[in-house]
């Protein structure tokens, strides 16, 4: 798979009239995937999590038989606080469940209201991934749009917008998110909106800086010279060439959004129980941890840890080639 970002310009003259031939900036993601273990690991994990989320969402929204959780993630089984089976029994149990049609065991145990931890852990991407993905995309769209306008048209109005964006960025992130979510009702879409507002200033800043450096390039002047209206210069010519920093930032923003979503649920300002959500599962298991019931909160935590790390690894890989 080859991605060539933005329209390619053969040769342009920069502000001082020197002809610059732009480097063809392309990354070969497939080559990178084969050669870099860390990047490959990140991509694979992200793909798995997306797949899990997709399975659950297709089942819930369209009623397709794509549910792969052995138990209903929202339905208590009646077996309360069951520890997971010892590792030595796993192969035997696996064979029994798959070939002999036995009732699947609680692989990761059950929590103290009887919900199956394994089912909830693999059903949770539907909440976490959806919130994080949509929030990151919305904040990117919003931030890129505002950043483009503020970088392209420099006047008092856009200056005021920038100051507001700076102000927003100087806010304590976690508290702002808690206030936004708790006071607007702890619904999934409110969390998405809150996260989008919290993360948008980063994209405003990134895009604006890139737009400002692109606007003085020769191709912008050429676009103007052939009679393009200003808005068309901004959206058709400057925007596609200013997207790269934001696109790189998206990956790590999704990771941070997962951390923030689960952190909010953990302190009680996120999604409501019994929604399958990693942070909420950890928080439900937290009082049990000093009693030695480790299984309720360890597995969702491993899931968060791996997912966020994967997004960071992907983001780092892209940054290396592009940034």
């Amino acid at each position: 798979m080859t991605i060539t970002p933005g329209p390619q310009v053969a040769a342009t003259a920069d502000a001082s009239g020197v002809v610059v031939i732009p480097k063809r900036r392309r990354i070969d993601i497939w080559r990178k995937y084969k050669e870099e273990k860390l990047f490959a690991f990140g991509c694979t994990m992200v793909a798995i999590m997306l797949l899990l989320a997709l399975c659950e969402i297709l089942h819930l929204e369209l009623g397709l038989p794509t549910r792969i959780t052995p138990y209903d993630p929202n339905f208590a089984t009646g077996n309360v606080s069951v520890p997971p089976p010892p590792l030595a029994d796993w192969p035997g149990l696996l064979v029994d469940t798959i070939f002999n049609g036995a009732k699947p065991p609680h692989w990761f145990g059950t929590d103290n209201s009887g919900l199956d931890v394994f089912s909830r852990t693999i059903a949770a991407p539907r909440t976490d991934m959806t919130i994080a993905l949509v929030a990151a995309l919305v904040s990117m769209l919003l931030g890129t749009f505002v950043g483009l306008i503020c970088g392209f048209y420099r006047n008092i109005a856009t200056e005021v917008v920038m100051r507001i964006s700076d102000l927003l960025q100087s806010f304590p992130v976690f508290i702002t998110a808690m206030v936004l979510v708790a006071l607007s009702g702890r619904q999934v879409w409110n969390i998405v909106l809150a996260l989008a507002i919290v993360y948008a200033p980063i994209f405003v800043r990134l895009t604006r800086a890139e737009v400002m450096s692109q606007s003085v390039r020769g191709y912008v002047e050429s676009a103007r010279a052939v009679g393009n209206p200003e808005w068309k210069v901004a959206f058709r010519h400057v925007l596609p060439n200013s997207l790269i920093p934001s696109l790189i930032q998206v990956s790590s923003t999704i990771g941070f959004a997962i951390l923030l979503t689960s952190g909010l649920s953990f302190v009680g300002a996120g999604v409501r129980p019994p929604t399958p959500e990693w942070g909420l599962m950890i928080s439900l298991g937290a009082p049990q941890i000093i009693l030695g019931e480790w299984w309720q909160s360890i597995f969702p935590g491993v899931a968060i840890s791996l997912t966020v790390f994967s997004f960071a690894a992907v983001g780092h890989g892209l940054e290396e080639d592009y940034g």
């Binding site: 942070g279 941890i289 000093i290 480790w294 360890i298 935590g301 840890s305 966020v308 690894a313």
Partner: peptide, 29 residues
């Protein structure tokens, strides 16, 4: 390098719980 990438992307509340489990409960056991 790996540590920097890894630790920067961790749910600190979960690690806190794990440390409680390990250093309080398990050490006690």
């Amino acid at each position: 390098f790996v540590w920097g990438l890894f630790a920067g992307a961790q749910p600190e509340f979960w690690w806190g719980l794990m440390f409680v489990f390990f250093f309080f409960f398990q050490f006690h056991e």
